[in-house]
């Protein structure tokens, strides 16, 4: 599953394994993955100029295009409102 691909990729990147959680929400033809990581790992998951999260998003959308589903991937951190990083397209 796509969630497992995202999870394996994220876990290889972060220091704080405990803080990683990924949720999948389906809403009609929309599929949304929310990746939560420790605030200290946020940069590792997003990457320089967003290149890591963009790569994950592109793979997710390639899968979505086959199944005619719109896929969204967002990254949030454990620091509540302030630490929330929402960089959806």
């Amino acid at each position: 599953m796509l969630k497992e691909f995202l999870e394996a990729s994220i876990r290889a990147l972060v220091d704080d394994q405990q803080a990683v959680s990924i949720t999948e929400e389906r809403n009609g033809s929309m599929l949304k993955y929310t990746i939560q990581v420790a605030e200290s790992d946020r940069g590792r998951v997003i990457g320089k100029q967003g290149r890591i999260v963009n790569a994950l998003r592109t793979v997710a959308q390639a899968v979505g295009s086959k199944n005619r589903v719109r896929v969204q991937v967002i990254v949030i951190t454990d620091e509540g409102e302030n630490g929330e990083y929402n960089d959806e397209d």
Partner: peptide
């Protein structure tokens, strides 16, 4: 071909991702 994409767009991004993951793992 879905992971190649138009003009290799998806492939280049995937290559970047693997070049971040593989050196770490």
């Amino acid at each position: 071909r879905l992971l190649v994409g138009k003009n290799g767009e998806v492939l280049e991004k995937l290559q970047y991702l693997f070049n971040t993951l593989v050196p770490k793992v």
